[in-house]
Every structure is written in C-alpha cells, then in structure tokens.
C-alpha cells in the first residue's frame, strides 16, 4: 500500500520535473536571442567576437557611440512621433466607427466589417505604387505625414475589429439606462461608452503603436534622407566604414535600445495585450 503511494508520488514528481524542463527550454528559446544581443552590446572592440555565453565584459562604449550618432537619435524621435500620431489618429477614427458597428443593426454593417477584414489581408506591396503616387500628389514624400498616412492601412482595420469587439461586450443595460435618462447617441458614446472603454482603448492604442513602431516596408520606401528615417530603417541600413566590416556591437546596442521600451510595455500590459490580440482576431 505504502509502496504504491510512493510510486505514485515518484511518478508525479517526475511529471512535474518534465513539465518544468519543457517550460525552461521554451523560455530559453524565447529569451536567448535577446539575451545574446544584450551581452554582445556590452562588448566593445574585438571583444564582440568572444563566444563566452556569460557576460564577461561590461563596456558602455557601444551605447556611447549610438547616443552620439545624430542619425540614430533622429530616427528614434521620428519613430516615436510617427507611432504616436498613428495610434492617436487610428483610435480617433475607429472609436467612432466602432460604435454603430457594435451597437446598431443597419444595412451595410456587415459589408463594412468585411471590407475591414479584407484590408487586413492586403499585402503592403500591393498598395506600394499607388501609395507612392498619392504621396507625391499630396507632396509629403520623405515626411512623417507620409508614414502616418500609409500606416493607417495597417492599423485601422485591425483596430476597428478590436474596438467593435470590445464595445460589443458592454452590457446593453447600461445603454438602456442612459436612454431612459434621456441621453441621445452622442451623449451615450461620449459620457458612457468612452469612459468604460478606457482600458480597452489603451490596449488597442498600444497595439497600433507597436505595429507602427515596427513597420519597415513603407518606411523604407517613403523616406529618403537620414533625417526622415525611422528606427527599423536606420537599423537595417546601419553599416560600418567598409562593406565587409559590419559593426555588430553598435547594431546590438541600438537593437536593445529600440526593443527595451516595447518589452517593458508588453510586460506591464501583458494581460491587456493578450486580450486585445485575441479579441479582434481569429477564433473558431
């Protein structure tokens, strides 16, 4: 009897250990590249070629160089500005649009949602030449406005779906109570729905911000000068004095700087981001 119990305990322990092992492997796979970038970024000069897995050097030389690099700082500012503007504009447009889509039934409603879904599947290159012409016509080539405009195609459909889903989840009793109190649609939206949706808005705004911050193809195509570039572009075009000598230490330092704000945001808003990512996307 006791033996059987011990055996059972032993089995359970083994099972737990195996599970912990799998967890560790998964965590290591997820984190190692970023860890390695951090470790490499603290190795200056020839130390970068060290393959010691532990952080053996601690030199801020790479970071100093990056911070002295005006082009990089400029692109950092560009990215922040473009991503913020994109997020705000997207939210402004989608918050209003999501209201009738989520709360009302009217002809054409389904079609609007379908169109938004269709736009999410559009490849970016498929709008590239048309967008290029539009930007030329509007005379905003090589400016932030060009990027904000083109990023809307990525952020708006996604945000629209997510916001519609969030807004749909507000119980109708709240709306009915407001109607009973004599509120019209605009008051319901501004005084009832928007405050309730505060957290959801932060989530979707954050997702739009991240999407804009990470975008590469449009940024590469619609900017020309160093002053107009965003971080991904300047990172991609970062090269050393000669073609064969890629300054990996610098690139890693810049990469860490670019990623750190995002990682912090995601760890803080982890739960919200997950709900935002899954509420608007595919589910069976």
């Amino acid at each position: 009897m006791i033996k059987a119990e011990n055996k059972w305990k032993y089995k359970r322990l083994l099972k737990n250990a195996a599970f912990a092992g799998v967890c560790l492997v998964v965590a290591a796979c997820c984190l190692f590249p970023f860890y390695w970038a951090v470790v490499s970024s603290f190795r200056d000069g020839a130390n970068i070629f060290s393959t010691d897995l532990w952080p053996t050097h601690l030199s801020f030389e790479n970071y100093k160089t990056v911070f002295k690099d005006k082009t990089f700082l400029c692109s950092f500012w560009n990215s922040a500005a473009v991503a913020t503007m994109t997020a705000f504009l997207t939210l402004a447009v989608c918050l209003f649009a999501a209201y009738p889509l989520a709360r009302h039934r009217f002809p054409g409603r389904k079609r609007v949602l379908m169109i938004a879904l269709g736009v999410t599947t559009l490849p970016q290159v498929a709008v590239l030449s048309g967008m290029f012409e539009l930007i030329r016509v509007l005379d905003i080539y090589n400016e932030k406005a060009a990027l904000v405009l083109s990023y809307m195609i990525i952020t708006v459909p996604f945000t629209l779906w997510t916001m519609t889903n969030f807004m749909k989840s507000i119980p109708k009793e709240i709306e009915e109570a407001a109607i009973m109190d004599g509120a019209n649609q605009r008051t319901i939206l501004m005084k009832v729905f928007f405050p309730i949706l505060g957290p959801a808005t932060v989530t979707t705004g954050l997702l739009a911000f991240i999407a804009a911050w990470n975008e590469f193809l449009f940024a590469l195509t619609f900017t020309l000068t160093n002053q107009a570039r965003t971080v991904p572009v300047s990172l991609a075009l970062f090269s050393g004095a000669s073609q064969h000598e890629v300054p990996y230490g610098l690139i890693m330092a810049a990469s860490v700087l670019v990623t750190l704000p995002l990682v912090v945001l995601v760890v803080i808003f982890q739960r919200r981001i997950i709900s935002g990512l899954t509420v608007g996307s595919v589910k069976g």
Binding site: C30, P33, N214, L235, A236, T259, V266
Partner: peptide, 21 residues
C-alpha cells in the same frame, strides 16, 4: 506568458539583425 510574448514584441528588423549576428 510574459516570456513567451518577448519574441513577438521585438521589432522584426531587430530580430532579423539579432539572428543575422
């Protein structure tokens, strides 16, 4: 959950460059 999200968070260009290294 937070750890698993990390690769998704890292901008594509950054992960490409990290992996290239």
């Amino acid at each position: 959950r937070a750890i698993v999200l990390v690769p998704w968070t890292i901008p594509t260009i950054v992960s490409a460059r990290m992996w290239a290294w």
